[in-house]
Design a protein around this nucleic acid. Structure first.
Length: 262
DNA sequence: ATGGTCGAAAGTCGA
């Protein structure tokens, strides 16, 4: 059975009901994983998702910042809510798919502007978050899919200018190394690059601050869909929905859509 | 080198 799974940093779910509508009208999605929902669970627009055929919600939100959610066509069992910083931030929710596979939906801390933990605690928190996820995922052998905004563009071809971004948080060598350790700890397969290997450039985020995001095309691949090695053969396709960046009042991220035979 | 733009919230911060 094909299963269509999407991951999308929506940058406020309440500000963008029109984007959810357009996305679901453009292509059917069985399970939609959202990051940066930016609302408490009681404020989540449940009716919108029910109307669009995704009535089964697993919410892990908070006021103002962060927040992850999984909206599904079919009922799912919630498995865990992890707090890798132990600071109450809502960044990781996990469910079990009908096939028995685990699905993790994650929003890794952005890390602030200065890539030095001695002057910017947020950068240290990002690295610590990744280290804790690495310990966790290295200890788990269960087959799983992990999606989300990991806030790191690991490959030179994942950014518009590798050299220009070496000191920019999201593409610094120390972050790329941390993400590499995380990936290696479980043998996670980077499905985005499984289907679109380098040297092709692949982005999932474009800054709001560009005068013309499409013309300058200064993108980064911050969003990812990973799976356990034994599941890689079940992945049929993964695509980044670049056109969504051009929709009215868009998120600065675009959805990733994967189809699995699961 | 700087500023550019969003969203949530409240008169600013995080992205």
């Amino acid at each position: 059975m094909p299963l269509t799974l999407a991951s999308f940093n929506i940058n406020s779910v309440r500000a963008r009901p029109h984007i959810v509508e357009t996305l679901l009208a453009r292509q059917p999605i069985d399970i939609l994983c959202l990051q940066e929902t930016k609302c408490a669970d009681g404020e989540f627009p449940r009716d919108l998702f029910a109307r669009l055929g995704l009535p089964h919600l697993h919410l892990h939100g908070q006021r103002m910042h962060h927040g992850v959610a999984i909206a599904s066509r079919m009922p799912l069992a919630e498995v865990a809510r992890h707090d890798w910083q132990a600071n109450g931030e809502a960044r990781h929710i996990a469910v079990r798919l009908p096939s028995g596979i685990l699905l993790h939906n994650v929003y890794v801390p952005a890390g602030g502007d200065i890539p030095d933990r001695s002057v910017n605690p947020k950068f240290g928190q990002k690295l610590d978050y990744l280290a804790r996820m690495t310990d966790w995922s290295g200890a788990s052998r269960e087959p799983a899919i992990l999606v989300g905004d990991l806030n790191i563009a690991p490959l030179p071809e994942d950014v518009w200018d590798h050299d220009a971004l070496l000191d920019v948080v999201s593409h610094t060598p120390v972050e790329v190394e941390a993400l590499g350790h995380f990936q290696k700890s479980h043998g996670w397969v980077d499905l985005g690059r499984h289907f679109v290997p380098p040297p092709e450039r692949l982005y999932s985020w474009w800054s709001y601050r560009a005068r013309d995001w499409a013309a300058s095309d200064r993108g980064r691949r911050l969003d990812h869909i990973w799976c356990s090695p034994e599941l890689a053969a079940t992945a049929r396709s993964v695509a980044t929905l670049r056109e969504a960046r051009g929709w009215p009042r868009p998120s600065d991220h675009v959805p990733l859509v994967a189809i699995f035979d699961l």
